[in-house]
Design a protein around this nucleic acid. Structure first.
Length: 339
DNA sequence: GTCAGTCAAAGTAAAGCGGA
DNA sequence: TCCGCTTTACTTTGACTGAC
């Protein structure tokens, strides 16, 4: 028997040490700890007494080996997230980490772009994780398609038309419809929408909510006031100029990135909010909360999205059934920008 | 047949060991 | 010294053994 301590740091007590000390096999110790399999009550008590006295902690690598599990979950972030999106993904990640830690899992993070999922494939090929949380939903969702093909458990933070995918989201369509209706009923007659990339499912849901509010209130949409796929500042500024020329009295922004660019452009043009034009966002953030005047926005607990996603994923990994779609509550926070 | 316990195998990095 | 093979570490679990 070689001396394994010769080249290593002080080692933790193992199941083998306990077996040797108590004159039992490693199997018997394992069964006494797990409660699975037949074992005498007195033996079980002896083992439990010993592990309590010696602060035994199972080796998760070996446990994973025996169960063909890694006790890791992967979190996939978009590599092309812009600066204003980072707080969203950070809060998601914190929620996922909390959920994972509470269920004895660790988290590995990697990134994908819309058309390059090689880092996700590497994570799966190398068997680094038992399951995956996708933090962005796309219309043509390459990561989701890939994970379905290879049969790895995963959940999606967002919405998908694929009914096989477990989805964690807020009801964006209902929230945006509610906020748009509030604005329409407050007396605004020319309510514009500036929305982002329509390849992102969330932006489609927000657009549907805007349209539904007009249908419900019986007001016709003026397409001159609707601009989609605003992916950069130049497009946003052009859109703002266009809707102001078309008499917009309220600007609804599909997210805080667009909203912050709109606010900056309005300030440059010395256009007063809310006196000349009202502004609201379908997604809230610290940037908007700290703006003068404060901006009316839809509020969602992003960390709760992450916690829910993490818990659902680990349930699926453990073989438990879970609901296909979970919705996290939203609230409309009315501020001076629409008063 | 039942009960209580043991054996062996799973994956893989790192260390040990023998021969060239 | 280098190369390549063997052993070890770690836990779980189905199959197996021995006593009654």
């Amino acid at each position: 028997m070689k001396d394994i301590n010769k080249h290593s740091s002080p080692k933790n007590i193992t199941i083998g040490d306990i077996a040797k000390e108590l004159g039992l096999s490693k199997t018997t110790i394992s069964r006494a700890i797990s409660g699975k399999g037949r074992i005498g009550a007195e033996t079980r008590q002896r083992v439990h007494k010993y592990i309590l006295e010696h602060n035994y902690r199972p080796n998760l690598v070996a446990k994973g080996l025996a169960q063909s599990k890694t006790y890791n979950i992967g979190v996939i972030l978009p590599a092309d997230a812009n600066l204003t999106e980072i707080p969203f993904f950070q809060s998601c990640l914190m929620g996922i980490c909390d959920a994972a830690a509470s269920m004895d899992y660790d988290v590995l993070v990697t990134t994908v772009t819309d058309d390059d999922i090689s880092l996700l494939q590497r994570l799966i090929d190398n068997q680094k994780v038992d399951g995956v949380v996708l933090t962005r939903s796309l219309v043509h969702d390459l990561p989701a398609q890939y994970l379905k093909e290879v049969g790895i458990p995963f959940v999606l933070i967002g919405t998908s038309e694929d009914e096989d995918i477990v989805q964690i989201d807020s009801n964006h369509e209902a929230g945006c419809c509610e906020l748009t209706t509030l604005v329409l009923k407050s007396g605004c007659e020319r309510v514009a929408l500036l929305a982002g990339n329509q390849n992102h499912m969330v932006n489609r849901s927000r657009y549907r909510g805007y349209v539904k509010a007009f249908l419900d209130t019986g007001i016709e949409i003026d397409n001159n006031l609707v601009h989609l796929n605003l992916n950069n500042n130049i497009l946003i500024q052009k859109a703002v100029n266009g809707i102001l020329d078309n008499g917009a009295d309220c600007i609804l922004c599909s997210d805080d990135f667009i909203c912050s660019k709109v606010l900056a452009h309005l300030e440059e043009m010395n256009i007063a909010i809310p006196d000349r034009v009202k502004v609201a966002s379908f997604y809230n953030s610290n940037n908007l909360e700290n703006h003068t005047p404060p901006i009316t926005a839809l509020n969602i607990s992003i960390k709760e999205l992450g916690v829910t996603a993490g818990k659902h994923l680990i349930k699926i990994i453990s073989g438990e059934t879970t609901s296909r779609k979970s919705l996290v509550n939203y609230e409309i926070v009315l501020k001076k920008s629409t008063s």
